[in-house]
């Protein structure tokens, strides 16, 4: 909408104020994380009075964050790679191949999107226990390797690509498999970026799965580790905030780098 200049200025001022309000807690976290652990007080929460970077080193080594970072990285990368792969293949088939039962199978798979994981935690726990996967990487990875959201995303994306691009390849005798990898996948880079961002950030931030499916210290992921850290350090807010900063940096950084894909992904599919 085109606005008159004064109106636009008021709007800008209001927006700036509100955005600042939303960013305020994050700023307070940063300032506090660098404060003196002994002398934290109300006066220090807006302007840093000191920059004590040792807080980060101390928090990092206080429990077992290095190990938890490795665990989270392994799980998030494996789940993300798996979801991209299974969704690419299925999405391509639904968008580009005519086959018997296509619409029924697509509807059946997409309807799984509405079932929240939280209500299935008991039967999934039972399956994982039977496989003896509880407290292993498998429990955190395998149940998340396919997701209807990804299939939907790629099916939608592939439908927008003109057929001519594939046809030349078929004339040359290429198989579907080769067309998918050599022609479609390079074109699908924006959609892959979207799914990568969503899945990685969701997995990095996940608490429920590791809470229920792991039991020992060395299997804890970053979020579970942070939760335990909070229990142990209760009112040591300086070190707690330092831990909040380094556990949050990966997801915020990825979001800021891929902001365009992220917002577009929500807007086109309307789903997390």
């Amino acid at each position: 909408m085109q606005l008159r200049p004064t109106c636009s200025r008021i709007r800008f001022a209001a927006s700036l104020l509100i955005a600042a309000l939303f960013a305020l807690p994050l700023w307070v976290v940063l300032v506090t994380s660098l404060d003196d652990p002994a002398g934290l007080g109300f006066s220090t929460w807006l302007i840093p009075s000191r920059l004590r970077f040792e807080n980060y080193v101390e928090a990092w080594h206080a429990t077992n964050f290095p190990r938890q970072f490795v665990n989270s990285l392994v799980v998030a990368l494996a789940v993300t790679a798996g979801q991209v792969l299974t969704s690419l293949m299925a999405g391509y088939a639904f968008a580009r191949i005519r086959f018997i039962g296509r619409d029924v199978i697509l509807m059946a798979l997409l309807s799984t999107i509405i079932v929240p994981f939280q209500v299935l935690v008991i039967p999934v726990f039972v399956i994982l226990a039977k496989l003896s996967w509880i407290n292993t990487y498998w429990a955190l990875i395998v149940p998340s390797l396919a997701n209807a959201f990804g299939i939907f995303l790629f099916a939608q994306f592939f439908r927008t690509i003109p057929y001519e691009l594939e046809e030349a390849a078929y004339v040359d005798g290429a198989t579907r498999w080769r067309v998918l990898w050599q022609i479609m996948v390079p074109l699908a880079r924006p959609a892959i970026a979207t799914l990568f961002l969503f899945t990685f950030i969701a997995e990095w931030n996940e608490l429920f799965k590791p809470l229920v499916f792991t039991s020992t210290k060395d299997m804890r992921t970053v979020q579970l580790g942070l939760s335990v850290f909070q229990e142990q350090f209760r009112v040591d807010y300086v070190h707690l905030m330092a831990a909040v900063v380094f556990t949050t940096v990966p997801s915020v950084l990825l979001f800021l780098l891929g902001q365009k894909h992220f917002v577009k992904g929500i807007a086109t599919t309307g789903l997390k």
Binding site: P25, V29, N205, L226, Q230, L240, T248, F255
Partner: peptide, 16 residues
């Protein structure tokens, strides 16, 4: 700025 809280984890936001 307004969207960033959404990509922080619930655990981090809860601790804060």
């Amino acid at each position: 700025a307004i969207f960033t809280p959404y990509v922080t984890s619930t655990v981090a936001a809860g601790v804060v």
